[in-house]
Amino acid sequence: MERGKSTIHHPPSTIGVLALQGAFREHCRALGRAGAAAREVRRWRELEGLDALVIPGGESTTIGKLMVGYQLLEPVRELAAAGLPVFGTCAGLVMLAREVTEGNQPLLGLMDITARRNAFGRQVKSFEADLEAPLVGKKPFHGIFIRAPWIESAGVDVEVLAEYDGHPVAARQGNMIVTAFHPELTDDLRLHRLFLTMVSSSFPEMRRAKASGPAGSRQV
């Protein structure tokens, strides 16, 4: 634990990690090591009282369908619009995108980017590579790309944080940050820490953020 080193959040922020499918445990672990308290979120009620939300890697079609089936899309859209910081990795990037180049899967559509799914190819093309990401320091960030998407195009408000082979693979817009690769599969906490600084700067308004479920869907 490196909680003692942290200067940015008192008391520890509670970060929700969407736990419908995918690598949510790894994000919980990384957030814990970065000094935040992580909590798994499977139903909209569990969004209540969060300081931020992580949408992990996994299969974006599976995650999207489960978000629709359990009425999570609207509440997350509302909270993000109200300023809740959101961090999406891989499938999370796809979920946050305004649109995808192919198919018509459910999306949150919050960030002004177009995502290309499986942009680098199938699993045999999955790779590791060091990336320049000046915002988190001089030392390259080790990117693990698993059937990863890239950002095909981005609006003017989107700040590109890292590129690979000429394609944006990490970006930020307002209270949202996305990566096509998986920082949660490495020991490098710099991106999670960057996210936590976004959390602390939106403090204290977000302390009051309450989930409001969609009308008429309060049973399951």
Partner: peptide
């Protein structure tokens, strides 16, 4: 850039977790 590493092989399995 490295492909076919144990990290990317096990990485896909990590992404399948919690799924069918």
């Amino acid at each position: 850039m490295k492909i076919g590493t144990m990290t990317v092989k096990t990485g896909l399995a990590e992404m399948l977790k919690g799924g069918v």
